[in-house]
């Protein structure tokens, strides 16, 4: 015994050797697992990679005028506001003029794929959760865990398993961005007025008719709030994902941080903000349009 330990000031711990052994053996087991199954899992995600590459190529390969036209068309049909359309044109011109067009297209493709995947997985999960209290009891703490665990921590196992690249980046973005999608789908369906459900029951509607005709449409505004949140969180995650090889605006920001290029960081950060505002305005506008029946105005 070299040192005197005081029970009240030094927290009782496992012996250092045991902790080291625990860490070592867990890491070794995981490494073994990833060596064994890494290729298999990678090939499992291959279709996803193709999907992602398809979107990136589509956005990068399309003439910039066409892209601006399409985004403006979406914005106009969503908001019916010329102000927003003009704002989008000006800010996209700014991004392009400052030489960040291709990076922004790569990020945009990445966000679109992450959002599509989050919706595709999140909505069925949310529906399942709304139908079963047991599912809700199990999934809720998992979502809490996903939302509070620092993203850097779950980057480690993903990278160990799949290496550096687009897919591990995409997976970590989805893990980060999907919880609001699941939560708000569940909430939206559970919030549907009981008397309206009773009315559907009284007409002999089956559970699936109730879901498609009543619960899902009435939950749509809440679900859309989830889509909007998911997009915003995916955008926020773009920079962290760039640390494991996702290209686009995030990578430039990362380069700016490591080299202390203030202006480069500022410009690319601005481009991310622009992307976020555009996505936010358009998705919110569509969310509001679904609720048009809630207003008393003639349509």
């Amino acid at each position: 015994m070299a040192k005197e330990t005081n029970f009240f000031f030094d927290f009782p711990t496992l012996p250092v050797e045991m902790i080291r052994a625990f860490k070592k053996s867990t890491d070794a087991a995981y490494k073994g697992f990833s060596r064994e199954y890494g290729d298999l899992i990678e090939s499992f995600f291959n279709p996803l990679l193709k999907f992602l590459v398809f979107w990136e190529k589509l956005l990068v390969g399309t003439p910039w005028l066409v892209i601006i036209g399409v985004v403006c068309a979406f914005a106009y049909f969503g908001t019916r506001s010329y102000k927003i359309v003009i704002g989008i044109i000006l800010s996209f011109f700014f991004v392009g003029y400052m030489g960040m067009w291709q990076d922004m297209m790569e990020s945009m493709g990445f966000i679109i794929v992450a959002t599509i995947m989050s919706i595709g997985i999140g909505i069925p999960m949310g529906i399942w959760m709304s139908k079963s209290n047991r599912a809700q009891a199990v999934i809720t703490p998992i979502l809490d865990f996903m939302q509070t665990l620092p993203p850097f921590v779950y980057l480690i196992p993903v990278v160990m398993l799949l290496g550096i690249g687009k897919i591990p980046g995409l997976i970590s973005v989805i893990v980060y961005a999907i919880p609001p999608m699941i939560r708000l789908t569940n909430l939206g369906i559970r919030e549907v007025d009981r008397e309206i459900l009773e009315a559907a029951d009284s007409f002999g509607a089956t559970p699936s008719q109730k879901l498609r005709q009543v619960q899902f449409p009435l939950a749509l505004p809440t679900i859309f709030a989830g889509v909007n949140q998911t997009i915003m969180m995916a955008l926020a995650m773009v920079i962290i994902a760039s640390m494991i090889g996702v290209k686009g605006l995030g990578q430039e920001v990362l380069r700016a941080i490591t080299n202390q290029y203030f202006t480069l960081g500022m410009l690319n950060g601005l481009a991310i903000v622009i992307l976020a505002i555009v996505f936010d305005r358009i998705s919110q506008a569509y969310g509001k349009r679904i609720q048009k029946h809630r207003s008393g105005d003639a349509i």
């Binding site: 009315a199 029951d201 009284s202 005709q213 009435l218 809630r294």
Partner: peptide, 22 residues
């Protein structure tokens, strides 16, 4: 059978109308 019964034999009108707003 209950679903069939509700479809064909009964229909209900509610206090707070319970119309489908969408």
């Amino acid at each position: 059978e209950l679903l069939e019964f509700r479809k064909n034999k009964t229909a209900m009108v509610f206090q707070k109308f319970a119309l489908l707003p969408h």
